[in-house]
Simulated assay, not measured.
Amino acid sequence: MDICYNKLFKILIDRNLKKTEFAKMVGISQNTLAKLSKNEFVSMEVLVKICRGLDCTPNDIMEILPLDNK
């Protein structure tokens, strides 16, 4: 796992938005919403839609995790 969208879901909780309402509002599919929930990579286009819809920046919705050096 290289990325974490916990910040995004915290914003949704703070704004009292359900995930499905949020997906419709910003114009993303349920499959994309599932990817976000699993901390999987999504396209830059999706990130732009989310940031425009929530009036925020990528730093507000995601965190890039450090590499695990084993």
Rank of each mutant, 00 (worst) to 15 (best):
M1H: 10
M1R: 06
M1D: 00
M1Q: 09
M1Y: 01
D2M: 12
D2Y: 04
I3W: 03
I3V: 14
C4H: 04
Y5G: 02
N6I: 04
N6M: 01
N6L: 05
N6Y: 09
L8T: 02
L8Y: 04
F9N: 07
F9Y: 10
K10W: 00
K10I: 10
K10L: 13
I11H: 02
I11D: 03
L12G: 07
L12N: 08
I13R: 15
I13T: 13
I13E: 14
D14E: 15
D14I: 09
D14V: 05
D14F: 07
D14L: 15
R15S: 10
R15N: 14
R15A: 09
R15W: 03
R15C: 04
N16C: 09
N16L: 04
N16W: 03
N16E: 14
L17P: 02
L17Y: 12
K18V: 06
K18I: 00
K18M: 09
K19Y: 00
K19T: 11
T20F: 10
T20Q: 12
F22A: 05
F22N: 06
A23P: 08
K24R: 13
K24D: 07
K24N: 11
M25T: 10
V26H: 08
G27D: 05
G27T: 08
G27C: 09
I28N: 06
I28W: 02
S29H: 07
S29K: 06
S29T: 15
S29V: 05
Q30V: 11
Q30A: 13
T32I: 15
T32N: 07
L33C: 05
A34R: 12
A34N: 13
L36R: 03
L36V: 03
K38F: 03
K38N: 12
K38Q: 11
N39H: 06
N39T: 06
E40I: 00
F41T: 12
F41A: 15
S43Q: 12
S43R: 12
S43C: 06
M44K: 13
M44G: 13
M44Q: 12
E45A: 15
E45D: 15
E45C: 02
E45S: 14
V46L: 05
V46R: 06
V46W: 01
V46A: 14
L47I: 15
L47K: 15
V48H: 10
K49C: 11
K49G: 10
I50N: 06
I50A: 08
I50R: 05
I50F: 06
I50D: 01
C51S: 03
C51Y: 02
C51F: 03
R52C: 10
R52A: 12
G53S: 12
G53R: 11
G53W: 08
D55Q: 15
D55L: 10
C56P: 05
C56F: 05
T57S: 14
T57G: 02
P58W: 05
P58M: 08
P58T: 07
N59P: 02
N59T: 14
N59H: 14
D60Y: 02
I61D: 03
I61S: 05
M62W: 01
M62T: 10
M62Y: 06
E63I: 14
E63V: 14
I64R: 11
L65S: 01
L65Y: 06
L65R: 12
L65C: 08
L65F: 04
P66A: 11
P66T: 09
L67F: 13
L67E: 13
L67W: 04
L67D: 08
D68E: 13
D68T: 13
D68I: 11
N69A: 10
N69D: 10
N69P: 07
K70E: 03
